[in-house]
Amino acid sequence: MNQYPDKHSDAPGADLDQQAGEHGMTRRQLIRHAGWFGGAVVLTIAGGEVISHVANARGAAATTAAGDSNALRFVQISDSHIGFQGPANMNVAGSFTEAINQVNSLRFRPQFVMHSGDLTHLSTAGQFDQVKEMMTGLRTERVFTVPGEHDSIGDSGRAYRRTFGRGTLGDGWYSFDTHGVHFIALVNTVNLEKLGHLGTEQIDFVRKDVAGLPSDTPIVVFSHIPLFAMYPQWGWSTDDALKVLAYLRRFSSVTCLNGHVHQLFTKSEGNITFHSATTTAYPLPKPGQGPAPVPQVVPAGRLKDALGIRTVAYRQGTEVLAVKEEKLA
């Protein structure tokens, strides 16, 4: 279940009941924008400009925020696919447990952990109960979630919302504020045919949600499916995302974090930077490499190189946001 403070509140929660690349992008451009497995992506926000680069996976993403006890630090995990059975990963519960242990062994205790969707593989009651119980082991103040399409199979997400949707709106969207950052959690996996879809009600929620915010407020948006056209042929895009992004263009810094594609990718468009996260379950092929995004079997002993978590640090007043990728290996 999502557990989060009231809108515009910093009060902590305590419960857990809660071709390649973008269409038309050349391979050279893709390599310049992406670090597929591993590698730290550092975002520096200064004067309203977002500058990013791929850095070494071991510590090069560190900023002054990392050692600041007053900094906001959170972790993104994604695509645990509890219930999956197949040669790409014969023990997804085991690798998800390793991811949880990795979160708990970080040099800091994150203010919250966000699971950005596909918590389960088949959205059964048993799978939801299992992943919920597993996440009680996370050492953090709060846990947030957004659903993936695998969490909405057969019932338009009703089972997901019964388990994780307390306090959310519509199909499970919500927002909250902490440490001077405004967070928006969106659902683009319920009403979809091929591409992700937000819908008019949710788009209107975003319009009203950000209307009173100062333009220098850092914005972080969570969704499962990317909010940019990463590879529409595989459904790696959201058909009406531009309508939401239009309401965010006036803000000096916007960061959109998604799952779904099971690999790292970063892309900037003006004031908005998009980061796709890796998975704790199994890798998918790079865009266009194969007829469909099916689970990939990697050489023995190399699976953990393709799995991981993401840590984010932000120190209020310095306009620095650090996004670091941590492999399970």
Rank of each mutant, 00 (worst) to 15 (best):
A99K: 00
A93H: 08
V92G: 01
L106S: 07
G83L: 07
I100E: 00
N101Q: 15
P87G: 08
M90C: 10
N101F: 05
N91I: 03
N104C: 11
L72I: 05
N70C: 10
F96E: 05
I100Y: 03
N101G: 14
F108Q: 01
A71G: 08
N104H: 11
N104P: 14
Q76M: 09
L106D: 01
A71C: 10
F108H: 08
Q111W: 08
A93D: 14
S105F: 04
A93Y: 13
P110S: 01
I77Y: 00
R109S: 11
P110Q: 00
S95W: 02
G94I: 04
R73E: 11
S105M: 08
N70M: 12
H81V: 03
P110D: 01
N104L: 12
V92N: 01
N89A: 11
V75M: 08
S78Y: 03
G86F: 04
Q85N: 10
V92R: 03
S80A: 15
F74D: 00
V92K: 02
Q111G: 13
D79N: 14
R107F: 12
I82L: 15
S80K: 04
R109K: 15
S95H: 10
Q111F: 06
L72W: 12
T97M: 09
L72P: 02
I100H: 06
S105N: 13
T97A: 12
A93P: 06
A71F: 09
G83D: 04
N104A: 09
P110M: 02
R109C: 02
R107G: 13
F96H: 14
N70I: 02
S95F: 00
Q85A: 14
S105L: 05
I77F: 07
Q76E: 10
F74T: 03
N70V: 06
N70F: 10
V75S: 09
P87W: 06
I77N: 06
N91T: 03
P87F: 13
Q111V: 11
R73F: 05
N104K: 10
M90I: 13
G83E: 00
Q85H: 14
L72F: 09
R73Q: 14
S95C: 04
E98S: 13
R73H: 11
S78D: 07
F96A: 14
R107P: 13
D79K: 01
Q76N: 13
R73Y: 07
A88Q: 03
F108K: 02
A88E: 07
F74Y: 13
G94Y: 09
D79Q: 08
I77D: 01
N91Y: 07
S105E: 14
V103R: 00
R109W: 05
L106H: 06
S80Q: 12
G83W: 05
I100T: 04
F84W: 13
I77R: 01
A71I: 08
S78F: 04
S80V: 04
N101M: 09
R107W: 13
F96S: 12
G86Y: 03
F108A: 00
N101W: 09
N101Y: 07
Q111I: 09
F84N: 04
S95E: 07
F74K: 03
N89H: 06
N104F: 09
A71T: 10
N101D: 15
V103L: 05
A71K: 07
V75L: 10
I77V: 15
G94F: 06
